[in-house]
Design a protein around this nucleic acid. Sequence first.
DNA 1: TTAGTTTGTTTGGCAGCCATACTAAGTCTG
DNA 2: CAGACTTAGTATGGCTGCCAAACAAACTAA
Lengths: 415, 415
Amino acid sequence: MSHFLRLVRPVDGSWMRMTNLSVVLAAIVDHGGVSRATLARETGLNKATVSSLAEELGELGWVRAGGQDQGALGRPSELLEPNPGRGVIIGTEINVDYLAVLVSDPAGAQRALVIEELDVATTSPGDAIERLAALMRTGLEQAAVAPADVLGLGLGVPGVVDVDRRLLVAANLGWRSVDVDDMLRRAVHGFLDEDLPVLIENEANLGAVAEQTYGIGARFEDFVYLSGELGVGAGVVTAGELLRGTHGAAGEVGHITVDPAGARCHCGKYGCWQVFVSQGAVLDRFREASGSRDGARPGPRPEDILAAAETGDAAAVETLATLDRYLAIGVGNLVEMYDPNAVVLGGFYSTMYRERVDELRTEVASWVMDAFGRELSIELSTHGQDACIWGATGGMLRSLIANPRHAAALDGLRA
Amino acid sequence: MSHFLRLVRPVDGSWMRMTNLSVVLAAIVDHGGVSRATLARETGLNKATVSSLAEELGELGWVRAGGQDQGALGRPSELLEPNPGRGVIIGTEINVDYLAVLVSDPAGAQRALVIEELDVATTSPGDAIERLAALMRTGLEQAAVAPADVLGLGLGVPGVVDVDRRLLVAANLGWRSVDVDDMLRRAVHGFLDEDLPVLIENEANLGAVAEQTYGIGARFEDFVYLSGELGVGAGVVTAGELLRGTHGAAGEVGHITVDPAGARCHCGKYGCWQVFVSQGAVLDRFREASGSRDGARPGPRPEDILAAAETGDAAAVETLATLDRYLAIGVGNLVEMYDPNAVVLGGFYSTMYRERVDELRTEVASWVMDAFGRELSIELSTHGQDACIWGATGGMLRSLIANPRHAAALDGLRA
DNA sequence: TTAGTTTGTTTGGCAGCCATACTAAGTCTG
DNA sequence: CAGACTTAGTATGGCTGCCAAACAAACTAA
């Protein structure tokens, strides 16, 4: 019953206003500085309407007058720009061996970035989140921003996050069914606002959001962001929207089967993709192929394989070729399944293919059935290691822009 | 530039009205007969607004007064119901060996169903579409409906259809880059309205739409409809929306690699999923396994395998076990990638698993990495062979409901 | 200095939703 | 059976918010 109701939801005047505020604010943030007349042309809204919306955005503190812009002819325009005094967004990340906090403003300017190494797998969720909260204080101090000026908080975790912001599982942290939202709010209690907007999302998904908001993904309506560190994960954007699925686990591609005869994965299945292409798997293969002559030395790093391959080292060359092949098989599957415009290589892969994208493009071509002349780009991430925190920030920014009236930190404005 | 603008589009009063007309019409179609008061409660719109919207829907011919409904207490309500005289939707299908036309009204009542066998692979696109147009005339005659009363036309094809309704490729028909929209409009020129709304979509995608609109899919927000005849295709619904991808090829899962050591597919790759689980592959395997003792007999049908397995025939049992295994591997991949609530077995699979779903459920469980207690149903299609035409109809219906003012066939109303 | 061009504001009108009051049509109770 | 109660639907008036058009402002060009 009621399946058609899902088509759309009813709309009233206040929703209309809110939507149009969003549209104009988004355009202003996007341009950085833009006149009312241009906004009217670009959005299709009436000039008078744009003026009214811009005035409200000014009162809300989102927007301020910038400089003037003199065209070839006519009255010069007054530029509207995002108000840097509006507040900041905190983007954070909990990963296997570090915590990270980024403080930035809605225009995308970085105010502070702090990182703390931590073996999260041996830390309880509660403790890790406490330390993350402490790191946020440090970040705000460095940025010289008062806690009351925080507009929203984003957090990326290497696990599956459901629609209620519960972390269902994070295999590499050893966490299961953790109410991260609740813990986070407790940890920042008395420090940040009680009902601060909070976004919690999977790390690969946020990588995709980072590329979509601040990076190369802005060029594509449908793309797959591929990230691999200990496991392999993908963030999928289709029709401009992040694909989440029922549990938020869409794009958890590490355990797709690419070869049932492959080695056993720790998940119990055989031939999972990440058995072939995760960072750990690749480094292991390289170590084995190069023999145990340097058994005492610390494990190789990704760069070591690239450097060795440069010199013609057989083990390195073979390792890279195998990676190319299995990465291409999996990417081929992603392409057939999601039909994206582009695949963006992030994390480990952005390191491994910085100079070798063409090799991968060639290999992928032979593993994608293309009967109709696909448009498919394979690109390198523009964010590298920082993708997750920028995605946490960008996701929060989108959420704030979608609700310009509900933003926190209005106290200063009211006073 | 302008990536944030994609968040939402600006809204004005007429858009608001249109949206609310849609909401109310959708609810009326969905219920079949419902009072204004109930509509107000369910949609959250004001009673007065619902009355006004309902009046306009009446003027547009979409809705008429049905009977009365006396509750336990109070004034009886007047039921609003879809107007069966509003017109009909034609849902059609071009498949490898037949054409099909379904005539039905917006309430979902079937008025006529005609099917014509045709070896489409040896027929040119133009000829096939001409014959489809002829079949539509037959269907309308059988339904005793005038061509002017056709509200919209949907067509399903076993191929990739892009956003401009071009058929990019249909391997099993041997068609490539066919402007089906244009051909169809020419074929019905002078018979159906010049600017009749037309929907052209991939067959598996329409299977998903059929289940979503009229079948078991209505229970799920995210599900994958799996259809297999000559190839294997999936229609994916996420967040209540059909996933199409850049070229409309999302869910074309027949050529994902499930075993690089597998047999060569006609596409040139090795170990494509459809090499293991398509109807043709399964029948072939059964034939080989049962030996060539009956080489002269016509090939087995799907039912023959099931019947043989019932009697304990070793070849049949082995064939089914292999199908279970490889179907489960692929379904596992789909589940990891799309994270659906449900997988709906359509086409060939709805035949093969009608009595054996539990076997597949068990097998799938061992090929899905489930670290967090997934909710996943595996269900049989409710539509079987007719999924595609009902999907073409349902898709067109959704499109009409989304634009209640733009519907065709208003001439009769105006006169 | 005047005409032309572009920007942004002001004014008035209109569409559309909502709250409220009211009418309509039934059931329930004493 | 009359009056209280309940629910459905309509009518009225108000408010919000968009738009069109006129206007004021600020500049260039001749």
